[in-house]
Design a protein around this nucleic acid. Sequence first.
DNA 1: TTGAAAGCGCTAACAG
DNA 2: CTGTTAGCGCTTTCAA
Lengths: 337, 337
Amino acid sequence: MKVTIDDVAKMAGVSKTTVSRILNGNYSQATEETKEKVLKIIRDLNYRPNPMARGLKQMRTNIIGIVLSNLSNPFWSRVLEGVEDTCRQSGYSLMVCNSNEDSEREAGLIDGLQMRQVDGIIVNPTVNNKELYTEIVQKKYPFLVINRRISDLDVDDVVVDNIQGARLAVEHFIERGRRKLVCFVYEPEGISTWQERIQGFKKAMSENGLVVTEQSVIQVDNASGRAKAAIIDYFRQKPDVDAVFSTNNMMTLEILEGFKELGVEVPGQVALIGYDETVWAKHLNPPLTTIEQPAYEMGRIAAKNLIQRIDSKTARKPKHVVLKPSLIVRQSSGDHQ
Amino acid sequence: MKVTIDDVAKMAGVSKTTVSRILNGNYSQATEETKEKVLKIIRDLNYRPNPMARGLKQMRTNIIGIVLSNLSNPFWSRVLEGVEDTCRQSGYSLMVCNSNEDSEREAGLIDGLQMRQVDGIIVNPTVNNKELYTEIVQKKYPFLVINRRISDLDVDDVVVDNIQGARLAVEHFIERGRRKLVCFVYEPEGISTWQERIQGFKKAMSENGLVVTEQSVIQVDNASGRAKAAIIDYFRQKPDVDAVFSTNNMMTLEILEGFKELGVEVPGQVALIGYDETVWAKHLNPPLTTIEQPAYEMGRIAAKNLIQRIDSKTARKPKHVVLKPSLIVRQSSGDHQ
DNA sequence: TTGAAAGCGCTAACAG
DNA sequence: CTGTTAGCGCTTTCAA
């Protein structure tokens, strides 16, 4: 049934060594004649080398594994597209796992991927498995972290400049004459993404002469409905706020829902900027000003750099890539003064 | 460095056969004593069987491959979540590919997956590779088709009842007093999903005493911006239409954009129902009435049934699953009469 | 320029 | 109840 290298060898009247060599492009040391002959038989028989046998021998699988924390956020879909494209073009297959932001599950998944001997692993880390990440890096397993940094760990990573993202929002608000800003964010819990957005927000506020208080940054549980409740709560207490910076696209939808329930007008009463550009942002009511992250690019570069590390046999220093976000201005952030 | 079954055997003073048996749960024929001993050593050495060696021997990989046609549509992200959950829980890894609706690429991907010896393949088919699908089914390779049917091919599939989906929309429009309906759809090109939505739309129209004309169903190119242009065009010619059924979630966003440009009021002037529920639907202006498809469920069942087929050594008839869509009523479809 | 042979790590007859 | 042996399909020294 299945055609093996032996079948080809027999049929061509050569040894499997020769077939193997030709298969792997070792043309240099082969007669044009035998080469053509073998190649033809391979075609005729539609012979495909068995990757497991090959892998067993070479100790490599040509598979890259990725552990994402949230498959349903369109930001990650886009990243995944970038990773998939690059892997496919480079001859790698992609194994996808979903940690769902659960660090135990993440550990299991990373473990499983290693056991499977995938050639490299990309992960959007929950950051609660530092020992594991460290161990992997130490044993020189090709490993790349995406979107979030691991503090005190020198590892390949690709992130977006979240401080800059927050600054873009703050400065835009100020340009539009807003002064009472508030930032909504999920519990940072050691996650660099959230921390940096908070940090950037505060820094940009200070630099522009606005005072930062306890009430400038509101942290909410990352669970459905919590952001909506929080914004309603906040508004009842501080009805004079005039600009909200939402640091996550799902959160933004909830905030909008809250505003509707409150009867608050956007941007008349309060301006709104959301993190992450999405297909729907421009169709919201009002069209949403957003901070766009180069998600596809992030995926592409992550895959590219990981593959480079896999290919480079010699040890090399981890590569750190920081991508720049940009501002997409629409109506939700108000008009020019 | 890497610890193999030989190391364990040596260390435990038994043969690798014994280790292998214990590893695979063949406890029945083993002394409690040796079993404990071997198990302990396995733990101590942190021994992990090499899946490639195992796969080479057993001719199976414990990998399932999936070929999607559009990673960035949230509908598919949700399906993927269902597939991933089920695979993980059943001990399979998931290999994800993106055909991007390109049938040549699809053929290459399916081919690659087979070559990789994945244990089964799920695909949202472009439907332009019938010979390939047929060949795969004939050679009894575990294969399951999702979302779209392949005509004249008896293969495992999981789809949603698109006729019913369209009917839900039409009947809802009629209840709300609308009579001049139009359906927007991408070029069907043999894709059952689109065909059935058109068919269901026409059928429900007729059954409710509405006449179906050439202008009742508008087909547009599946390229960015085409739907927006089409709706604007249509409206200028037939300004008396009072209900639009959009058969795709991206298309819906464009239609809304078109309406805005036209200054058409929804639902005042025209009612709108969109296919596929999304996170953003309820936040649109106005909140969108949608046809919801059980995407996660679809992924779950697809994976489950594929695994059943993989496990069942005996030939069995293909299983056809048809899931039911449901209507989520919001403001875009108008008020009760 | 080509081939023989050893083996990657594991499982499964078949013996004992 | 356990071990010996023979591969799974491929790559890779080492020899010719």
